[in-house]
């Protein structure tokens, strides 16, 4: 079954763009719906997996396309400065990274995915999302800033707990579906 075969791959893409698993499932099904509807348009000279991946990405963009508030120059500068701080070299696990990226606001998360993971330019992202390149840059820097803070906070928590590996325990924040990290068993 096509759906089951590519479910894991497609879901891993949707989870990166979604705020939580439920939204990811919705995006996934909209993406597969497009897959089923456009199977006759698939060209065999391209890898089928890559084709599905592209459809999932587009479904994610469709889901989260929005008019994002314009960032002012101060925000941009502040965010850019912040990402120049040193980061801990600790290697994070997939679940930790996923939980962090899902904690980002939708606009930041979408731009970060497209720029940092998919490799699009700000000009391309601006066209895809219907925003300005300045907004794209601003959102990327803010996304990096937030991610950096999460990594540092997670490192601090890990250190306080004796250096054990931290794992994400997801708590839904009703304001914007934030994901909060706690160390193993340490609710404080």
């Amino acid at each position: 079954m096509l759906y089951k075969t590519f479910y894991g791959y497609a879901m891993s893409i949707c989870l990166r763009y979604a705020g939580n698993r439920y939204e990811a499932s919705e995006i996934l099904n909209h993406g597969f719906f497009k897959v089923f509807s456009n199977l006759n348009k698939y060209s065999t000279d391209k890898p089928f997996k890559a084709w599905i991946g592209r459809i999932m990405m587009n479904a994610s963009i469709d889901y989260y396309r929005s008019n994002i508030r314009m960032a002012n120059a101060d925000d941009l500068e502040k965010a850019e400065n912040l990402v120049h701080e040193d980061l801990p070299d600790k290697k994070l696990r997939y679940d930790d990274l996923l939980a962090m990226i899902q904690q980002l606001p939708n606009a930041y998360r979408t731009v970060f995915n497209l720029y940092a993971i998919e490799g699009y330019t700000h000009e391309e992202i601006a066209v895809m999302l219907g925003i300005s390149t300045g907004t794209s840059k601003s959102n990327l820097f803010k996304a990096r800033d937030k991610l950096k803070r999460m990594i540092i906070d997670a490192e601090d928590v890990s250190r306080d707990a004796g250096g054990g590996a931290y794992s994400a325990i997801v708590a839904i924040n009703p304001v914007n579906l934030n994901v909060t990290f706690f160390n193993n068993g340490l609710f404080r």
């Binding site: 990402v83 679940d95 940092a116």
Partner: peptide, 27 residues
Amino acid sequence: MRRADENKIDRQFRKGLTETEGNSTFR
């Protein structure tokens, strides 16, 4: 398509989130 830059955060998330499909088990 831009070639991925060398930003540390970008690289960390790119590798961590694309080299595995994680636990996206079928539901």
